[in-house]
Design a protein around this nucleic acid. Sequence first.
DNA 1: AATCAGGGTTCCCTCAGGGAACTCCGCCTG
DNA 2: CAGGCGGAGTTCCCTGAGGGAACCCTGATT
Lengths: 150, 150
Amino acid sequence: MQRTDFGTMACSIARTLNVIGEPWSPLILRDVWVGLTRFDQLQADLGISRKVLTERLNHLIDHGVLDRRPYDRRPRYEYVLTEKGTELIDLLMVMVGWGDKWLAGEAGPPVLYRHHACGEISSVDLRCAHCGEPMHADDVDVMAGPGAAV
Amino acid sequence: MQRTDFGTMACSIARTLNVIGEPWSPLILRDVWVGLTRFDQLQADLGISRKVLTERLNHLIDHGVLDRRPYDRRPRYEYVLTEKGTELIDLLMVMVGWGDKWLAGEAGPPVLYRHHACGEISSVDLRCAHCGEPMHADDVDVMAGPGAAV
DNA sequence: AATCAGGGTTCCCTCAGGGAACTCCGCCTG
DNA sequence: CAGGCGGAGTTCCCTGAGGGAACCCTGATT
């Protein structure tokens, strides 16, 4: 956990960081998403310390992003995304889009995504949920909302 | 910086985290985006340690996300988003969408975004860049790409 | 009974974050 | 022109989180 508490700030970015902002958390979600769901799989794939992995998994479970399920009569567990966690994958897909564009270099993107609806290799684009037109940094005005700090 | 180097992993998520994954970095980008562009403004608004703020700003500049510009003949500087940095705001907008939905609670979202194109208070939605249909966690197949690890 | 494998705990060490004080540099004011 | 000011860092110490390796527990399997 970061030393400063982001969860109490009147900012949805800070609050989201309070859930998945710690080092490793997004990578854990990525692995669970693509099917690495067990403790030792995660530990081996990420090279993360077992201690930190335990902490992160518990944190993500506490925040309702992951669910811990037994998959055997022995004490064996797998971690799965909740609905809340599945919607966080949006965030990862946008990170992939940015990383592919700005950081992939000569070799090209390490992973491709094929969209079921059209069958094409594609990437995400941000659209206004209201009118469907593109919605990026310069397309919006920022205004105080009902939950704003006093 | 996280102790483990994410920048060399064959994963655009890890590489993106290597640029903005440290604590505070996304909040610094948010502040710069909404117009808090000076050292003392950032320090006061975030409550971040001056030492860490210096480190973060230099890191973001090194990675081409921010630019440092003098705004006076005295040694005074402001930080502005590069094109690369501006495209990272997409990520923040998705974080806002998720945080507003899952973490805002009774009070409602702390900040609202009005879309220029339609004039409505809105939020972002992820669409396929190819066909324009929704594109979320369950709408894609993940496949190895050209830059995949051997 | 001994072994095995998954899923953690425990321990120690180092280094990053927090906080506060200090520095530097050019303008402004008396 | 000496002293003050304000922005922009830098330095110092202290605490606590991350890394690594070893250890433990539990329910099969042989």
